[in-house]
Design a protein around this nucleic acid. Structure first.
Length: 427
RNA sequence: GUGGCCGUAGCUCAGCUGGUAGAGCCCCGGGUUGUGAUCUCGGCUGUCGUGGGUUCGAGUCCCAUCGGCCACCCCA
């Protein structure tokens, strides 16, 4: 006996007991994306390491310590994508989609980050990602937030709240960043090691520090939204007016800064109090400078990412039980010839009753056992073929799980019509 | 990467101050040799996470290690 090979840390199997919930979320998502005219694309899970370094930023935790990076047989440094936007932008550039771009896209799939797993945080996790490329906003900014709000409504989620902020343009942020550095330098003693390190690399990140002494200092720090350029201020005002007009509640959180460097102007985050300390369910923002920075034609864009595992968990907590996908007919047989007959009968029924689930009991077992399994399958009717029925060219039909307990026999040729009639009657 | 808690049957767990493993569920079989969802009787299943140590003796105590969960951190 050989030793079991364990699953990789932080990587989860989604078993059939849970798949209904996932499919419910995915179906709802597709319906909402369709309703807004967004189209699906699919991009590789692996990209050149350089792509993420340039897009996400060297000083981010994601790039500094969380990437699954390896050298392939050809000597290239490749990385399992830790997020989707970089790859989508790359795909738009690679495929020449940017000229006059007005792209409304979404993408779904696994992302990889080497973090220590905990509730709501995995090393392989799934994101639904949406990008509006070639739109300067703020109208699309409002649209994609409305889209997410509609999804929560569709899924019956109430424990999510919207926070928004504006990071301004790179220029105004640079000025603000200098202001912030000055301020924090005057309070250097209060900063923890992380804060000190970020002071030079990315001082904005100090704003959402959870270190209590740092938080004290942050309280009186210059506020980003008060140091925006005029255009960003107007953009942000319009965003708020738009959300108000649509009746979407939000709070402005001046300390909301994203962990990825490419954001500018609008940033937003849907947070929940239901998932422990991993409270971000969906977050995103505008990245007007990224595409040019990646070598593409300068194109404004905005997008967001949603953690599918977290959404699935919220749906579960909201009491949603996915409708089980139960079969309608359970076919059982005894004896080699009858079992062959059962397979043939099931094929015939699948031809005649499209849209109905027909399960055949595979493997030999006593009828007692087969009936028990038929009940467990959730099927509404059992079809029985024994040596006897086979010899006479008939099939026995017996209703399951119910009052009606009479068994009847029909010629094989009639059975499709009889089953159809029974299913109609017992609905 | 740091910290807290936890690893006993396929699952959920019990096992007192050390005396070489147990329950329920599941599964299988009989009662009912071709008819279920109830009942009843019986049966199977364990390198007690792993390695070392203390001891006459370790699931139990000690050390190490791995894994899980949760938190810090970070984020979806």
């Amino acid at each position: 006996m050989s030793r079991n090979i364990p699953p990789v840390t932080g990587m989860k199997d989604v078993l059939s007991a849970d798949i209904g919930l996932w499919q419910h979320v995915e179906r709802s998502w597709r319906a909402v994306a369709d309703a807004y005219g967004y189209e699906e694309i699919r991009v590789p899970v692996v990209e050149h390491t350089e792509l993420f370094k340039r897009a996400i930023g060297e000083y981010t935790d994601v790039v500094e310590k969380e990437m699954y990076t390896f050298t392939d047989q050809g000597g290239d440094s490749l990385t399992l994508r830790p997020e989707a936007t970089a790859g989508i932008v790359r795909a738009c550039i690679s495929n020449g989609l940017l000229r006059g771009a007005r792209l409304k896209l979404w993408c779904q799939g696994p992302m990889f980050r080497h973090e220590k797993p905990q509730k709501g945080r995995f090393r392989q996790f799934n994101q639904i990602d949406l990008e509006a490329i070639g739109f300067a906003g703020p109208d699309v900014d409002i649209e994609i937030i409305a889209l997410t709000a509609r999804l929560w409504k569709q899924l019956g989620l109430t424990r999510v709240k919207l926070q928004i902020n504006s990071l301004g343009t790179p220029e105004s942020r640079k000025a603000y960043r200098a202001l912030l550095q000055d301020y924090f330098r005057r309070h250097l003693d209060a900063l923890d090691d992380d804060g000190k390190r970020r002071l030079e690399g990315n001082p904005l990140r100090i704003l959402d520090s959870k270190h209590p002494p740092t938080q004290e200092i942050v309280k009186n720090a210059p506020v980003l939204t008060e140091h925006l350029d005029a255009e960003s201020t107007a953009h942000f005002a319009e965003l708020r007016a738009g959300l108000d007009a649509l009746g979407i509640p939000y709070t402005v959180n001046p300390r909301l800064v994203r962990g990825l460097d490419y954001y500018s102007r609008t940033v937003f985050e849907w947070i929940t109090d239901a998932l422990g300390s991993q409270d971000a369910v969906c977050s995103g923002g505008r990245y007007d400078g990224l595409i040019a920075q990646m070598g593409g034609e300068a194109t404004p864009a905005i997008g967001f990412a949603m953690g599918v595992e977290r959404v699935v968990e919220l749906v579960r907590l909201a009491g949603m039980t996915a409708p089980a996908n139960l079969p309608d007919v359970f076919v059982m047989a005894q004896g080699d010839a009858a079992q062959r007959g059962a397979l043939a009968l099931a094929e015939k029924l699948r031809d005649e009753l499209p849209g109905h689930g027909i399960v055949v009991h595979c493997g030999s077992a006593k009828f007692k056992t087969q009936f028990r399994r038929a009940d467990e399958s959730g099927a509404r009717v059992a079809l029985v073929i024994g040596e006897d029925e086979l010899a006479r060219g008939v099939v026995a039909l017996k209703p399951l799980k119910g009052a009606e307990n009479t068994q009847s026999e029909y010629p094989v040729a009639e059975i499709g019509a009889r089953v159809a009639e029974f299913l109609r009657r017992s609905t």
